[in-house]
Amino acid sequence: MRLRDNYQKAVKQFQPKPPYVVNSLKAFVSGGLLCVLGEALKKWYINGFGVSQEVAEHWMMLTVISLAILLTGIGMYDTFSQFAGAGATALLSGFANSLVSAAMEHRSEGWVSGVANHMFKIGGAAIVYGIVVAYVLGVVYYIM
C-alpha cells in the first residue's frame, strides 16, 4: 500500500511507539518508591513525634508537597518526570508541581495577572473534577 493513499493509517508504521512496558515499569517503581517514602515519613511522625495517625497523614502529605515544590523551584522536577512519567505526575507531588510550575512560568506577567491567574492552569482540572464529582455524590448521598 502506498503511503500517500492512506496517509493517516499508513504513517503509523513510521512513528516510534512509546515503550509501553518500560515506561509503565518506570512509573510503577518510581511511584511506588515515593509512596514508600510517604509511608516511612508517616511512621516516623507517629513514632518520633507521638502524633495521631490522622495528623501524621497530613504532615506526610505536606512534606511531599514541600519536597515537590522545592525540587521544582531548583529546576529538577521536570528531569525526574521525564524519567518517571506518571510515577511523578499522578501523585500529590505532581499536583504541587503543576501549581508551582505554572506560577513560576507566569511571574513575568506580574503577581496578579501572571502568578495568581495562571497558578491553576494545569492543576485546576484535578480540583474542578474532584469537587464536581464529590459534590454530585454528596447530593446523591444526602437525597438517599
Binding site: 512513528q15 512509546p18 521536570d78 518526570s81 506518571a86 505526575t89 508541581n97 510550575s101 513560576m104 512560568e105
Partner: peptide, 17 residues
C-alpha cells in the same frame, strides 16, 4: 514551550516523536 505546550518546569514525559 509555554505558548504551545506547558509551563517549562511542569513534569511532562515527552515521547520520542
Amino acid at each position: 514551550e509555554r505558548q504551545f505546550r506547558y509551563p517549562t518546569e511542569l513534569g511532562v514525559q515527552k515521547p520520542k516523536s
